[in-house]
């Protein structure tokens, strides 16, 4: 395997989950030192342990991306010992399936706080270091940031926001050597997807219009592969992209 990330220091949020874990493992297999951040410290620890058991370099850190201090601490943890920060991958996200009338203000705020504000806070903390290293950012947005998914208003709004946040950073920081891109997966086989409850209040026929023509859901490793590509030198001219991993759902 090519070691695209040999000598690189990376920070992955949501690293205790399906996509974040797969991403952390792939980056580590290709030579990166990975700081695995998750609000669930134990889950981050399991990912880091699996990486070190396989001979890779990883540490775990608790991180609540809605808290600026926690974001600052996670970035500091990643570069403890004087390393440069080369890559930030924002995977941490929440969402649920619920008729919009039943969504509480707390739930709306929480979804925006984690998915959108959390991504912003992590980027804000990491950018000074990424400017120094000429590093890059890859955010996990979603097909829901481009194409409407019913019963998912807060999630769609947050992911649409992540896409424009990414593009805005790409334009603002391109001259300073930092690339910013995002991936937009459709259904990924993770615990997150499995947590979606299809109650009687949900009209399943409304989902048909956004389905992919390739059999899904995709494995988290597919998302990790795309993140690694965008982060790699082979994508040196790609910035501000929202790479759709949707099996044609937005075509």
């Amino acid at each position: 395997m090519t070691a695209r990330f040999a000598g690189r220091t990376t920070l992955v949020t949501g690293a205790g989950g399906g996509i974040g874990g797969a991403c952390a493992r792939l980056l580590a297999r290709e030579g990166a030192a990975v700081a695995c951040a998750d609000i669930d410290r134990a889950a981050a620890g399991r990912t880091a342990d699996a990486i070190t058991a396989a001979g890779g370099a990883a540490t775990a850190v608790a991180c609540d991306v809605t808290d600026p201090d926690s974001c600052r601490d996670a970035v500091a943890h990643a570069v403890a010992g004087g390393a440069a920060l080369d890559l930030l991958v924002n995977v941490a996200g929440v969402g649920s399936l619920r008729p919009t009338g039943e969504v509480t203000l707390d739930e709306w705020n929480r979804t925006l706080a984690v998915n959108l504000t959390g991504t912003f806070l992590m980027c804000q903390q990491a950018l000074p270091l990424l400017v120094e290293s000429g590093g890059s950012i890859v955010n996990v947005a979603s097909v829901a940031g481009v194409r409407a998914v019913p019963y998912n208003a807060a999630y769609c709004a947050s992911k649409g926001g992540v896409i424009m946040l990414t593009k805005s950073l790409a334009v603002e920081f391109g001259r300073r050597g930092v690339r910013a891109n995002c991936v937009c997966p459709s259904s990924v086989a993770t615990d997150f997807l499995a947590s979606f409850e299809f109650t009687d209040a949900i009209d399943r026929s409304l989902f048909d219009r956004a389905s992919s023509v390739i059999e899904g859901p995709m494995d988290p490793s597919v998302v990790a592969a795309a993140i690694a590509y965008l982060a790699s030198d082979d994508a040196a001219m790609i910035t501000g992209a929202a790479l759709m991993l949707d099996g044609g759902a937005t075509s």
Binding site: S212, V222, A226, L243, M244, G248, S251
Partner: peptide, 10 residues
């Protein structure tokens, strides 16, 4: 690696 990328204009 791009197995789920379809109809995309990169």
């Amino acid at each position: 690696d791009a197995s789920f990328v379809l109809g995309h204009a990169l």
